[in-house]
Design a protein around this nucleic acid. Structure first.
Length: 511
RNA sequence: GGUCCGUUCGUCUAGGGGUUAGGACGUAUCCCUUUCACGGAUGAAACACGGGUUCGAUUCCCGUACGGACUACCA
């Protein structure tokens, strides 16, 4: 029997969660659920300088918005906590010490200035990539070069030090990535990465391996930017004696800029006017507010569906998926290898599809909320009617109101272009006569009635209805295009219609 | 520069030794609609290049080009 699948999403609380991060979280979630496993959230806050207040909550809220709440997290601890690396600080030294004892790590006392100097010197000597490695470490101040008593003295006197991994020479490091296959790297190209910082905190590399091990992580699904350091991680598992329980790796393709090349950034989002964060984010540093997908009007299920398809596909031609269906269909084998350019049009398309699937009742809540902001109230029933007319033409819930204001507010101005083109005597004749007929009826106006009445009126006046239809629309709505006019008439009702016709007749002047 | 990863329509992708190289977004045209949108139909549009291997390569191999990631006491 194989052990339970456990995966984790491990972001750093350094700011708003980027859409790529959300996708990583989603894939982890889908994989966990597909395999009946657990999805954990671990906060990687080992860099205290980069900690941004509010970022943790933001991550939590973002995941909750799309409904992928972790099974274990700082807010819902399981058995393997704490779930914040800063709170796990005391746990790491033990493993660093073990590596030290095994000769797989060493103390290094070089100051930042000395490191800088070393890099400058190597660059000047035209060394291709200046790094702290098996060659250069022999010229630096560390427990490999310094006499044992000096090392001891330095440690005892509290000299600042870091612990570095001692990368072996001439060793082939290989790993079998679930999306990329075998990746091989020669240890000579690896450098002696810092494992423990001078502030006593582990670096990502150590913390990550220790935590994944201790938390029973079986699969590491993360962005491709980690691929170059994966061999280092494999070495660490080996040195710590955890080779047998080493998780399987899956490195996800990157999300790329929509134009040109490179990794998708906040800058691109601004440039093209689309969101890049799931939720609104107000930077604590400068108070700047960046729009999130949610606030921009993207529906959670549409966003999730869209996100799932950024680098993955089910292998058949379906593309509308609920979370449950995604879980069912998901597999790492079907994740693509190449980077994915971000296309906001596809996101909009998904949103339209999901918007149309929503019931009028549900959608009317959005409309009612928007109306409330302008201190307007209409009945739920009327709101639903408006929504049913508007939803086929909306991309975002806000469009319901933006494009349908005339359903509630009588137009005060009329589109000049349509006035110029379509407004004439015939329109005035038919509209006036229609208005009087409206006044004469005693029942509620229905769309069918309106259609018949208007048709008859035009016939009586011997005017082609087609010639004046758009002008009639203009008189009632102020604009030249929109949903079926007769349906609008029904929703407006005859009193409102009469008022609007009177206003139009009085205020529209043909040029 | 070095290491690693990648490359099918504009974009996301399916496919995989013999296919009219399929779908979706976008786009064009037409139909529907007394408007616009929705919807429907149809079209334009792709295997980066060069060598192998093979009867045959877009598919396998090698190179080249191009793109990307990484190259911190950041994750």
């Amino acid at each position: 029997m194989s052990k339970e699948v456990r995966v984790r999403f491990a972001p750093s609380p350094t700011g708003a969660l980027h859409i790529g991060g959300v996708r990583t979280a989603l894939y982890n979630y889908l994989f966990a659920k597909k395999n009946g496993g657990k999805f954990l959230l671990r906060i990687e806050d080992t860099d205290q300088n980069r900690y941004v207040p509010g970022a943790e909550e933001y991550i939590k809220n973002s995941l909750e918005w799309i409904g992928i709440t972790p099974d274990e997290s700082p807010w819902k601890p399981g058995e393997v906590g704490p779930y914040r690396q800063s709170e796990r600080k005391p746990m790491y030294m033990e493993y660093a010490q073990y590596l030290l004892d095994q000769g797989h790590a060493y103390y290094a006392f070089d100051t930042p200035e000395e490191l800088d100097e070393m890099r400058k010197r190597l660059t000047a000597a035209r060394v291709v990539s200046p790094q702290y490695n098996s060659i250069t470490r022999t010229q630096m101040k560390n427990s490999l070069t310094l006499p044992a008593d000096e090392v001891k003295a330095r440690l005892e006197s509290g000299d600042p030090y870091v612990i570095r991994i001692k990368i072996p020479r001439k060793e082939e490091v290989r790993l079998n990535d679930m999306v990329r296959g075998w990746v091989m790297v020669h240890s000579n190209s690896l450098d002696d990465k810092v494992l423990m910082k001078s502030d006593g905190m582990p670096t990502y590399h150590l913390a990550n391996i220790v935590d994944d091990h201790l938390m029973g992580i079986t699969h590491v699904i993360r962005g491709e930017e980690w691929l170059p350091s994966a061999p280092l991680h494999v070495l660490l598992y080996k040195f710590l004696g955890w080779e047998d329980s080493m998780p399987q790796f899956a490195h996800l393709p990157l999300l790329l800029k929509p134009d040109g090349n490179g990794k998708l950034s906040k800058r691109d989002a601004e440039k093209h006017g689309f969101p890049i964060f799931p939720l609104n984010w107000t930077s604590p540093e400068n108070g700047e507010l960046v729009d999130g997908f949610k606030e921009a009007g993207y529906l959670a299920d549409a966003f999730l569906n869209f996100l799932a398809f950024l680098g993955w596909n089910p292998g058949d031609q379906r593309e509308m998926f609920t979370v449950e269906e995604l879980i069912e269909a998901f597999s790492i084998e079907r994740i693509g290898k190449s980077g994915t350019k971000f296309d906001i049009n596809k996101a909009k398309w998904y949103n339209e599809q999901y918007l149309r699937k929503k019931s009028n009742a549900e959608l009317s809540d959005y409309l009612l909320a928007d109306l409330a902001k302008e201190n307007v109230t209409v009945s739920k029933e009327k709101a639903e009617k408006i929504v049913s007319l508007m939803k086929e033409r909306a991309t975002f819930p806000a469009d319901l109101w933006k494009e349908g204001r005339f359903m509630v507010f009588a137009p005060k101005e009329f589109d000049d272009r349509i006035v110029d083109k379509k407004w004439n005597e015939n329109v005035v004749i038919v509209l006036s006569a229609f208005r009087d007929k409206l006044e004469a009826i005693s029942t509620e106006l229905t769309a069918d009635m309106a259609r018949t009445m208007l048709g008859e009126t035009a016939e009586e006046k011997e005017i082609k209805l087609g010639k004046i239809m758009q002008a009639v629309r203009l008189a009632i709505t102020g604009v030249g295009a929109g949903p079926d006019l007769m349906q609008i008439f029904e929703i407006l009702g005859k009193e409102e219609l009469i008022l609007r016709i009177d206003f139009a007749l009085k205020n529209i002047k043909a040029s």
